[in-house]
Amino acid sequence: MPLATTRRTGLVDQVIAQLKDAIAEGEWPIGQRIPTEAELAESLGVGRNTVREAVRALAHGGLLEVRQGDGTYVRATSEVSGAIRRLCGTELREVLGVRRALEVEAARLAAEVRTDEELATIAELLDQRDTAYRTEELETYIRADTEFHLAVVRAAHNDLLTELYRGILEAVIASVAATTDTRLPETEAIGHRGLLEALEAGDSARAMAEAAGFLDELIQEA
């Protein structure tokens, strides 16, 4: 999607907003190098200094990474994601610890307020996940497992909790991949049937225990 020409007021803020939109909408995926300052300045009809300030602000927010002599790359899709990625870095144990904090609380709330439709979605995703594991379809398994956990978080009906979890979604995907590729196909998939049963029964204590249990195991192994 081409960037729109900016107005002559608040240029830096306008450029920041348009670059953020391009990132959020997938114009430049995570890990991809964005156009040069000169190319962006020409596209937007602004000076290179304006573009430089906007890029610097987004790099400070964690969305972009400036690599001297190489270019500027997309690092995250939102400020929340960028901030948490900076806090977590690449340490698997830290990512799993953040996941534990969010997913255990989400499981507790979901057991109390989930709808039948949400429960059906969670069950369907779990079936897809387990089937993909048995058939050794790693990418499908990672996607289904991530969507399963996100569906549980959504079923908690807490918008802020969901936004925080979506903010670390890239890190969640990476953690699922990191804790799966060494397991396939020798071992069974980490079981989540107990969590599903707890949600179905409305048992918040068991839901919390199930959500914490497998993450504690992964943290010990990391």
Rank of each mutant, 00 (worst) to 15 (best):
T5F: 07
T5R: 15
T5V: 01
R8V: 00
R8P: 10
G10T: 01
V15T: 12
A17T: 07
A17C: 01
K20F: 00
K20E: 08
A22S: 11
A22F: 08
I23G: 03
E25A: 04
W28A: 00
G31C: 07
I34K: 13
I34V: 08
I34L: 07
P35I: 09
T36P: 05
E42C: 01
E42S: 09
E42V: 09
E42P: 10
G45Q: 09
G47L: 03
R48F: 00
R48K: 08
R48V: 05
N49S: 07
N49I: 08
V51W: 09
R52H: 09
R52M: 01
R52N: 06
R52Y: 05
E53F: 09
E53W: 10
A54N: 04
A54H: 04
R56S: 14
H60F: 07
G61P: 01
G61R: 15
L63S: 05
L63R: 13
E65H: 06
E65F: 00
Q68D: 01
G69A: 02
G69Q: 03
D70V: 11
G71D: 01
V74F: 06
R75L: 04
S78K: 07
S78I: 04
E79C: 04
V80H: 06
L87C: 02
C88Q: 14
G89R: 08
G89C: 03
T90D: 10
L92R: 10
V95S: 06
V95Q: 05
V95D: 01
V95N: 01
V95F: 02
G97T: 07
G97Y: 13
V98L: 10
V98H: 11
R99Q: 04
A101R: 10
E103S: 05
V104H: 02
E105M: 11
E105N: 10
E105Q: 13
A107L: 06
L109Q: 14
A111L: 08
A111E: 13
A111Q: 10
V113N: 08
V113L: 05
T115N: 09
E118F: 11
T121I: 14
I122Y: 13
I122P: 05
A123C: 06
E124Q: 15
L125D: 03
Q128G: 03
R134S: 04
T135L: 13
E137R: 15
E139C: 02
E139D: 14
T140C: 02
T140K: 15
R143W: 12
A144R: 15
F148K: 10
A151P: 04
V152L: 09
R154L: 06
D159E: 14
L161G: 08
T162D: 07
L164F: 12
Y165I: 00
Y165C: 05
R166G: 07
R166W: 07
I168Q: 11
E170T: 12
V172H: 15
A174T: 11
A174P: 00
A177R: 15
A178V: 07
D181P: 00
T182P: 02
R183Q: 02
L184T: 05
G191A: 08
R193C: 00
R193A: 00
G194R: 04
A198R: 09
A198L: 05
A201M: 03
G202P: 08
G202N: 06
D203N: 15
R206F: 01
M208A: 12
A209D: 10
E210Q: 11
F214M: 08
F214I: 08
D216N: 15
I219H: 04
E221W: 15
A222T: 10
